[in-house]
């Protein structure tokens, strides 16, 4: 829009007569500072309006003059009593906002900024501690697990010692050298059967057996009247602990063979150790 169009759009009259809205007023005031033509158009309309108003003036009742002017004589007297007259040097457009409110607002802004900064700070802290907490929980769980494993092992060893020291426990030493025929595949092999003479429960303790290849498992046999009876398979991860096997009421020999994992109904694999009751 060029300036002439703007001037002749009716905005000048709208502004001067107080009919323009806030946005229009702001724009017009801006245009006035930028364009002398706009200012000149405003001045011209104002002047014609003023002349018209003065020409069409209607005199108010004469007594009003005294009443009105009297008020202004009275008002400054109040100021003089209070000291120097209060002369405001600048137009105060936003006078309803008191100084106190300004301080309150300023304080509120400062507090808000401070609060925001603290929020950031504490959030960082929170994340840091949250991470540390997670780490601690993980470690605690790990320790609890280790502890449980240790207790299991301890229990095993306690039972082992109890078994070894139990006077009712018969100890049958099985040895590679006792293996008949072609002999043991691992000559240094040794294992001990602990046989509770009262309950007939059989426990096995490995002294020395090679780690079986994967898919294979050691199996204990009780030889009863020349017939092999399954006495259970052995898990090597139990270590040197005494492991409870099956209940065997009577037997003359005990032997260990290497079988397919899960055990076999009859011994098929090579014999590693054997011992007489």
């Amino acid at each position: 829009m060029n300036i002439q169009e703007y001037i002749s759009s009716g905005i000048v009259e709208s502004y001067v007569l107080g009919l323009a809205d806030e946005a229009e007023r702001a724009e017009f005031e801006e245009m006035c500072t930028r364009f002398a033509e706009v200012r000149a158009a405003r001045d011209a309309f104002e002047l014609s309006l003023e002349q018209h108003a003065l020409a069409g003036a209607v005199a108010p009742p004469a007594h009003l003059r005294e009443t009105i002017l009297q008020q202004f004589v009275a008002e400054p007297a109040v100021n003089i009593n209070g000291g120097a007259p209060v002369v405001q040097l600048r137009p105060i457009r936003r006078s309803p906002i008191s100084m106190a409110m300004r301080y309150v607002a300023a304080a509120a802004i400062v507090l808000l900024a401070g609060s925001a900064a603290l929020n950031v700070y504490y959030f960082k802290k929170y994340r840091e501690y949250s991470q540390r907490y997670d780490q601690l929980v993980a470690r605690q769980a790990e320790l609890a697990l280790n502890n449980k494993a240790m207790q299991t092992r301890m229990g095993g060893y306690e039972r082992t010692i109890a078994g070894l020291t139990n006077p009712n426990m018969a100890k049958i030493y099985m040895d590679a050298s006792a293996v008949p025929g072609n002999g043991s595949p691992a000559p240094g092999s040794q294992a001990t059967v602990l046989w509770d003479t009262r309950t007939k429960d059989v426990y096995l303790m490995v002294n020395n057996l090679p780690q079986p290849e994967s898919g294979k498992q050691y199996q204990l046999w009780a030889i009863v009247d020349n017939q092999p009876v399954d006495a259970g398979t052995l898990h090597m991860d139990e270590g040197r602990m005494m492991v409870k096997m099956k209940n065997i009421p009577r037997a003359q020999l005990f032997a260990i063979t290497l079988e397919q994992e899960g055990g076999s109904p009859t011994p098929k694999g090579p014999m590693y150790v054997m011992g007489k009751v």
Binding site: A53, P60, L69, E75, V87
Partner: peptide, 21 residues
């Protein structure tokens, strides 16, 4: 702005009628 009473009287004498209208 200086609270000059004469100026107010002048203002009244010159503009009161136009404003009253």
């Amino acid at each position: 702005r200086n609270r000059d009473n004469k100026a107010f009287a002048y203002l009244y004498d010159n503009y009161a009628s136009a404003l009253y209208s």
